[in-house]
């Protein structure tokens, strides 16, 4: 998904009933901003090549 293709309104509209949430107009604008930031940051993560065997660290031991 490229930056141009990301549509935070579509994500919000699809997610709200799934999550059982409602949003006021003011909140929608802020949520859109946070989703846009998250999508931008996610590309840094998604674009990083990792082996299929790479293990997640849900419970991390240093």
């Amino acid at each position: 998904m490229s930056k141009q293709e990301f549509d935070p309104d579509a994500l919000i509209d699809a997610s709200l009933p799934l999550l059982g949430l409602t949003l006021g107009a003011d909140s929608r604008a802020v949520v859109k901003l946070h989703l846009t930031t998250a999508e931008r940051l996610s590309r840094l993560v998604r674009d990083f090549p990792l082996d299929d065997e790479a293990e997640a660290a849900p419970v991390y031991t240093a």
Binding site: L19, S27, V30, F48
Partner: peptide, 30 residues
């Protein structure tokens, strides 16, 4: 607080695959 709530709502909407990849990156960075 609306500032907290709207960040949390956005977080609840993100795809699960993103966070799995982020956790894998954590192992790499460690």
């Amino acid at each position: 607080d609306p500032d907290t709530r709207d960040r949390l709502i956005a977080g609840a909407m993100l795809p699960g695959g993103w966070v799995v990849k982020a956790q894998k990156l954590r192992g790499w960075y460690r």
